[in-house]
Design a binder for these strands. Structure first.
Lengths: 187, 187
DNA sequence: GTTGATTTTTGATAAATGTCAAAAGTTGGC
DNA sequence: GCCAACTTTTGACATTTATCAAAAATCAAC
């Protein structure tokens, strides 16, 4: 819990009063490798903070699993579209390692946001960071070659390589495992 | 101005008190086709609401202009990364048509956000909508073929075709103008 | 309307990446 | 340690998309 509180404080300082409310709002969850956190077709009503572990988001596109993001320590994770809109998730979220998470329900979060400007502010600022991160990935995905995307990953998020099988990374980069293998052999 | 106020109310209801503050916070701007709103290398200190007109964001990648987004009526536009971080913009924003915009400075907006929970809330909700929009584009960009991306545009944002030259649209879809032309001839 | 500039299309070819199949390597349970 | 399952690599080939060049179409200013 302390790690979550620290992470929040890092993004936007909260008053002791607001901070004290948080521990009761989150529920600790332990999950094993390969467990599912979110399943396609079901509404995702929780936002999670990943304290320890690794996780991937993927969906099934024409018989194939397409992994489109990874989460690690200190990431907030959820099926964002489903969580926000209340529609069924189109993606699955699965554990890559045994993990420890903290879950907050949409209702509890909404309540916090309504009652505490400083928590609303924290979320607003967190969104800015996540938006910028996604924007970078978007540009990378659409306008760079397979080799450039891989080099970019090496430079900016090399820890992914240590913790995720190459097949998932290939998918994450939008290339086939064979192409990734060839890109890697030429470096 | 009324259009801007309506649009904000549509996203998240504001009290009359908060709403009354807004007109003085925005400055009306008229720009002509081909004018620049944001230029690469300069810090972008304003957020804009596009009341009337059309606009594109692009950057120069290896001698080539890469258009990565369009804005139309009722869109908030800015060089988001630069506006949020205060770093120089890496992109350019250029008018595709003569346009009417409302500008708010970062300082003015920050002030509103700090003083009024309901405006912070509105921005938080607006971010959610923009995040979901970007997420959809990301998945589309990375995991669909050229033809699928074009068909997706036809289905979801056909008005872009009416107002933007095909060359820019090709770039927006991440394909060459020649490929776009061929995709179109087969439908 | 004519003309020059720009955009779009068409054709030929090249480069990047995907697919399929098989071999090699790795991993985890027993 | 061994075996079965899974992942990664390698090779041959197919497909998609880019590039270059030129023709056709469109646009904008006079």
């Amino acid at each position: 819990m302390q790690q979550l509180l620290n992470h929040i404080q890092n993004i936007s300082a909260l008053s002791p009063g607001a901070l004290d409310l948080l521990p009761d709002c989150f529920k600790k969850i332990y999950l094993s490798k390969n467990d599912y956190l979110v399943t396609e077709g079901k509404v995702c009503r929780y936002l999670y903070f990943l304290e320890k572990g690794a996780i991937r988001g993927f969906y099934n596109l024409e018989e194939k699993e397409v992994t489109h993001w990874f989460g690690f320590e200190k990431d907030f994770v959820t099926s964002f579209h489903s969580f926000i809109t209340g529609e069924p998730a189109v993606e699955n979220i699965q554990l890559l390692e045994g993990s420890i998470l903290w879950a907050i329900s949409k209702e509890t979060l909404s309540d916090l946001l309504s009652k505490h400007h400083e928590i609303e502010r924290f979320v607003r600022i967190a969104y800015e960071k996540y938006y910028i991160r996604l924007e970078e990935r978007f540009v990378n995905a659409q306008f760079k070659t397979a080799a450039e995307r891989y080099e970019n990953l090496l430079q900016h998020t090399p820890y992914i390589l240590e913790r995720v099988p190459l097949g998932f990374i290939a998918s994450y980069l939008g290339i086939s495992p064979e192409t990734l293998s060839r890109v890697r052999s030429k470096l």
